[in-house]
Design a protein around this nucleic acid. Structure first.
Lengths: 334, 334
DNA sequence: TTGAAAGCGCTAACAC
DNA sequence: GTGTTAGCGCTTTCAA
């Protein structure tokens, strides 16, 4: 049962009394008589043989593995994407290897190179920070998909959330509730910037003045932003670049005796799992992570027609962190 | 720059005017004259050569990869462990491949087999659900570490959190605050069971009656548990099997007008990132995920003396979800 | 210090 | 249906 040294198909062939080719066929579903198949199966079981994927991959030129590189393992969104990828790979008997770039271009490059040297059949790069030339030099003409990145100077298809649409939905919801003075707590990364730009655009289009508070996209960024928000007391609502910021904001607001949503309405972005359990449950924009994962996988496998860039629609999730502003439509600074 | 078909070291050898052996040596830091090293480097760069790890692994019998299998990617704790593993692997020029078992024995078996066939140098199985015989049959004598699993009938070292100690710390904190009627919302998995047993033991040792509410370790489990808790109104505190349950409990309690901690003290387990931002900030037991990851990696690489089983100490994180019960020490049911 | 050559374990023609 | 055999791309003796 326990292997001494390396068990190979030769051992199996031996104990089954057939050739290695036959064993290979048995293992891969080739033309085989039922009797020999049984014999081989027995031998495999008896020996506890496990095939060596390296050798197999070396000769077939395929590994059945898709490499996935995420910014960090910590994000629930990436986890959802991973599930989506799994959804399409598993029925195909394929697997994926997950690596993290730690939001660092150097590490991302190393991880990507590693995956490529691993001879992965395809590459899904999520939130890549590498420049277009770096990417092309590294990946060459291997199948790759860039997720959370807008169409680029790269030859690879991209898949991204329509951040503009999400921001617009959030703001419209706020407008419908009577808000006009809506501040934005901005994020730092690609997505954050896209959301900020959309926010500014929508505000201007509505004849309103954007007020942007810089932040680092984390809970503590949200907490810090609360202080900055105190300098803009006429704001009746805040659109946060993501849920984590909203969480930090909730916390700081509570400390300052500001009630959500009575004193200040809040909208998040992402729809992380804990959002609905907050007090009040957070109104937010959902990013369909799992679906994005599925799409990315199908794109990289070439199952879906590869258009230059695909974007998926976010969905507004209305819960309880938005209500009408206190004095109806506020006119001028207090 | 962009490879036509497969670029091999033969191509490199060719353009550098040396043999493949020399190229190999140059790539791996063997004895080489500086001049040829430079020539090879140039050729590599010029061609955009990337080594084929499969071939390399096939001949060396090592891949430099540690396989990691986690119950689900969604858990922040697993993410922290992954970071810990990375901490020790990266400086060694090694990598890890992450796979999920989706808390399903079948999928876990498949994932493990896949990693093994991948010829990983070691295996870190987190929260494995497989039985000892299944595990031994599958893994054989390859280096493996079982995380979040107590010492077993398996030949592999285990690494687990001292759940008993964590439960004890939580309960002692509650006792010190004057609580006697402490209920427990139990979890379903290994860890949950260990915590429940510890809870029961500590309660009995203190001459108190354990009250256990079954749950599924998720937010909705916590929400449901709130209803069950209504049948035990004399409880002044609840020890939750994890933070997610505590979150759901918070939510349901709020709906019922029960204040935390004034009406009911709550303690969680795990210390997930959002705990400190809740209202009130959650007192909980921290699981040192990153450190566990580091330990697991060192164990699997054989850097650390392999003792049969290692356990790491949890740490009580006191925040604001515990205070003295309302009427001091409650005596009898209402 | 470098090169020639023998495999690592497997699959895929090609014969039988 | 089954066996023979030539590699897949690389490292590693062994000689030179």
């Amino acid at each position: 049962m326990v292997s001494r040294r390396n068990l190979t198909i030769l051992d199996v062939a031996h104990t089954a009394g057939v050739s290695t080719a036959t064993v290979s066929r048995a293992l891969n579903g080739g033309k085989i008589s039922t009797r020999t198949l049984l014999r081989v199966d027995d031998a495999v079981r008896k020996l506890g043989y496990q095939r060596n994927t390296l050798a197999r991959g070396l000769v077939t030129g395929k590994t059945g593995i898709v490499g996935v590189c995420v910014p960090d393992v910590l994000g629930p969104l990436y986890a959802q994407m991973a599930r989506g990828i799994e959804d399409v790979l598993t029925p195909l008997g394929m697997q994926y290897t997950l690596l993290t770039s730690s939001r660092d271009g150097g590490r991302e490059g190393a991880a990507t190179r590693f995956l490529l040297e691993q001879q992965v059949d395809g590459l899904i790069l999520i939130g890549s920070q590498l420049s277009a030339p770096e990417l092309t030099a590294l990946v060459g003409d291997r199948p790759a998909v860039l997720v959370q990145r807008e169409a680029d100077a790269t030859p690879y298809p991209t898949l991204s959330l329509d951040n503009a649409q999400g921001a617009q939905a959030a703001l419209e919801h706020l407008f419908e509730n009577g808000h006009r003075r809506v501040a934005h707590i901005a994020g730092v990364r690609r997505d954050g910037r896209a959301r900020q730009e959309a926010y500014e655009g929508v505000m201007r289009a509505a004849g309103l003045t954007p007020v942007v508070i810089a932040s680092d996209s984390t809970e503590s960024g949200g907490t810090l932003a609360a202080a900055a928000l105190a300098d803009y007391p006429e704001a009746t609502a805040v659109f946060c670049s993501n849920d984590r910021v909203a969480l930090g904001l909730y916390h700081a607001l509570r400390g300052r005796g500001v009630r959500v949503p009575e004193d200040l309405s809040v909208v998040g972005f992402d729809d992380l799992p804990w959002g609905e359990y907050l007090a009040p449950p957070l109104t937010t924009v959902r990013q369909p992570g799992r679906e994005m994962g599925r799409l990315a996988a199908r794109l990289v496998l070439g199952e879906k027609a590869v258009t230059e860039s695909t974007s998926v629609e976010p969905e507004l999730v209305v819960r309880a962190s938005v209500c009408a502003p206190r004095g109806g439509d506020p006119s001028l600074p207090a």
